[in-house]
Nucleic acid binder design. Structure first.
Lengths: 169, 169
DNA sequence: ATATATGCTGGAGCTGACTTCAGGACAAGC
DNA sequence: GCTTGTCCTGAAGTCAGCTCCAGCATATAT
């Protein structure tokens, strides 16, 4: 059982052109061609391509994914290198998530700012009277916000660790 | 008290050129110039620019940030629009975080895959005997993973909601 | 047998977000 | 009065990651 490029595009939710671009970029050296030169994808190819798409979603560059794939072709000697590569990107990803969560809490703070301003009908409830400057104590309000999300984050980290241990045992 | 473009770049951790680029792109219409045409940034400008940098971190495009800023210039009538804009980007951001968390759990799964393979010394412990195909039950292993992170996510959502309610009261 | 769909390639084009460059103005210290 | 440092502008260049195009081959349906 094999799939055409169009079917794969459908299954993975990416375009045909993107798949061809990935192939050009050395991400799909394992994909075989049939007699008339068309790509034929196996279930296993799909499996691997899901990993590729996933790494891409994690913000891993095409070049880095290519090295990962090329390590794979070199066989069992590179298992540990591949593990290390993933581990490194996990760190990266955790950082990205933390950053986004911080941004989120800043957004929530700004929402509160506009929510209260809308209720009041004018923005200057947050200004120093007689100026166009934001009240300094708003920074503290923001800090308080950051703190609650930090706690959330710790909670998440704890849950992750637990999850990790469960899997290992 | 005002700051030069260099000082602001330093404070915000971005380059001078990036600031000028933002200005060109209409993100900084509020920044005033001195007699000889140089930009002079106030504390309030810095405040706003922090919001801009934050929106950028949240993956909001320059064009969208520009509309936000332009709404701001239109005064109190646009308070609700600005709130809605932020709210929309919050949804977006939440989606991004969820996506990254999914990716993370896939990465963790792959790490387990390579960890166990490294221990065994060869990758084929995960293959269907006699082939180069990954065992189908590994998909279930992956699914199990996804499930634990979904729970985590719900936990996080619950915590967020609680946090939100605390703020509103 | 012809129309339609799907595939192929090489190469050009596009978008977003910068980054660099050429050429020049002003300010301060020596 | 000269050097050094910081600033200005418009315009061109860069990079990643696609996306589109021309021109052609093959497969299926009518």
């Amino acid at each position: 059982m094999s799939y055409s490029i169009g079917q794969v595009a459908e299954k993975l939710g990416i375009t045909i052109d993107t798949i061809r671009y990935y192939d050009k970029s050395g991400l799909l050296p394992f994909v075989k061609r049939n007699e008339i030169g068309r790509r034929e994808f196996t279930d296993n190819d799909l499996h691997l391509m899901r990993t590729i798409v996933c790494l891409k979603n994690a913000g891993v560059s095409i070049t880095d994914i290519a090295s990962f794939i090329s390590l794979r072709l070199d066989g069992d000697d590179t298992l540990d290198q591949r593990y290390q590569l993933l581990k490194a990107h996990e760190q990266d990803l955790q950082q990205q998530i933390t950053d986004l969560q911080d941004t989120m809490s800043y957004l929530r703070f700004k929402e509160w700012y506009y929510e209260t301003a809308t209720e009041a009908g004018h923005e200057d409830i947050h200004f120093v009277p007689g100026t166009n400057e934001v009240k300094p104590e708003l920074d503290q309000e923001y800090d308080a916000h950051l703190k609650t999300t930090d706690q959330l984050d710790e909670l998440a980290r704890f849950a992750n660790v637990k999850d990790y241990r469960l899997r290992k045992n």
